[in-house]
Design a binder for these strands. Structure first.
Lengths: 199, 199, 199, 199
DNA sequence: CATGAATGAGATTTCATTCAT
DNA sequence: GATGAATGAAATCTCATTCAT
């Protein structure tokens, strides 16, 4: 048995985290293997021991980033109890919070949008996140409809509206942090979505 | 007087258009000066005669792209008459249409989002577009409020909600064109925004 | 029209010649793009301007080397007049001479044999040379047979015997130059082939 | 006494065999320590325990390959009895057969020719093989001359002619297996050498 | 104005070798 | 003996930029 058993996943994690930090700091076009290695505190050669090439590292980075965002929202949902409105509010807060509290992750996620246009592999990872998000959104919406708290809307359309609004407002929070706070944004998003779903 | 007077703006236009096409086809990371030159039908050397460096070309490309989007929305607004709801509807249609009918432009615009995170110059150009858009949105909203057709909302917040929703839904139209058509998206966006502004 | 028209073929030639010299000096495994560039007196970057990659340079080198060998033999044949035995003698001399007088070319040619085992492209270039050589050999042999000077042998087999002997003896001249001189080798090869073809 | 005593020679053999297989499959330029280790079923690190460096492994590989070829020819000679012509025939068959039946070994041997040009150590190993081959050839030739079956030729020249022809024809069998079979090649080589030595 | 050859810095990638376990 | 992770030098290749013509 290897004397260094179990090191591999740690090294991979270490490299991927360095990649994300590097992307957040210097952007997609500023990312180099050397910088990643330096930030990870390893030699440049080792990157190709754990990943076949640069793209594989980027794929792993996007997977990590989407998993992070996913986890944040799912955790918020879990904490929010069973009330449909409360769950919706938790979702809004978690999403908007992410773009500020997990700024690195969110920035890297947005950076990948550009690449996704030309890379089906990256697009598929993103699609997975959005599918899970739609399921997460669909549950409280359907529950609210059944309970007579929300009007009858198509779950697909509701998910598109909710996700769209949160992505778009998060972008604005990122580009112009002075314009309004997360709390303010959360309030008017809740307001808008509340009216959108109200009977 | 030189026989080629006035050629400069044409050459610049030619180069910038080639850059946009190249960005749309191969993405930000696939953009090279040589490809731009080939697509523009000029020699690689000439690019540095009209632009100091690669970044200057990218800046010009973003300026062109934002101006294009701007023009599309402004034109739709102008055609839509004076009724606040009609103007809002025109805005929704123009924005969502852009991401499909002017796919190249929209894709390039999204690709720049990633770069803006690390480039204040690009961010400023984007800020200009959003400022103009907010003004464009603000007018019918204020008008609707004055006319008693819309409830009293903060114009800033309304602009954030409207722009956010349209950006976010446009993204979904881009990444997953099968999910719903532009017409469907326009309908549910109008619906959501109508309820958001309804008294 | 370009101010540097006609430079391209010269540069290609320059690079290929440097590659051949480099291969002859340091061998296939010692060949680097940097060394080739230095020997050619150009910058490393320019190599990829004229050749897509290292392999393309190697292909051009093999093509040049085979053309060189071809030319040497064809020229000797042309000088040798019409007598079948004289032509055969000229062929033997030209081939064995090449391995000494054009040592660089011959060494590089032998070095490529190893690569040909795994590279169909290189193999095809070699096959072209051997096809031309067989034709060159076939003519005096057939002529000699018709004239009653040689016994009836299959031209294919005669070509295999003649080419085989010359390649094999050239190899020995290369590896052990002290063993016998070119003149000696030419004499006993002529002797052996003379007896092989004698009636 | 160590339980693993005597393991060393086995490991060395294992590594050298893997090297030969690797060279035959992917060529000299495709050989890496990692591939050798994988093919040998050992860890990359262990290679440097049994061999000081890559070159040492290559030297061992060439030694093994030449010993293999040597053994094949010597065995054929031994089986062929005492008649000079029969021994010569056995030699021709054994050599040509090797390039087909022991294709891996022969291919690797040819690959080393290129390296020998620049490596005196490898050249010396090859020289040893050729010296033994000349002795092996010299005996039946001298015997045939003494018995009055062959004409008086210089043994050195006869060896050069015989080895040269066999190497050259083997090369052709390798590069163009469709051209003629081993049996055909053996026939015309015997024919040519028979006439060469006939009184 | 325009060309396209040329440069050279730097990016990705490969790989022989080392070494802690 | 044996492992395989780790290193770092060097290789190939890319590309923004320059410049003679």
């Amino acid at each position: 048995m290897s004397p260094k058993v179990g090191v591999a996943p740690l090294r991979r994690e270490q490299i991927v985290r360095a990649t994300i930090r590097c992307l957040a700091r210097e952007g997609y076009s500023g990312l180099t293997m050397k910088k990643v290695a330096r930030l990870a505190g390893v030699s440049p050669g080792i990157l190709h021991y754990y990943f076949v090439d640069k793209r594989a590292i980027l794929v792993a980075a996007l997977e990590t980033v989407t998993a992070d965002l996913d986890r944040r929202v799912a955790a918020a949902q879990a904490r929010s109890g069973q009330d449909p409105r409360a769950r919706l509010r938790a979702l809004v807060h978690a999403c908007l919070q992410s773009s500020v509290a997990a700024r690195e992750v969110w920035i890297v996620f947005v950076e990948f949008w550009g690449e996704m246009m030309h890379d089906a592999g990256l697009r598929a990872i993103n699609a997975g996140l959005y599918a899970r998000m739609r399921r997460l959104i669909g549950m409280p919406v359907a529950q609210g409809i059944r309970a007579g708290r929300f009007r009858r809307v198509s779950p697909i359309e509701a998910a598109a509206v909710i996700l769209g609004l949160l992505d778009g407002v998060s972008l604005q929070l990122t580009f112009d942090p002075q314009a309004f706070s997360v709390a303010t944004a959360a309030r008017f998003c809740e307001d808008a979505l509340g009216r959108y779903l109200a009977r």
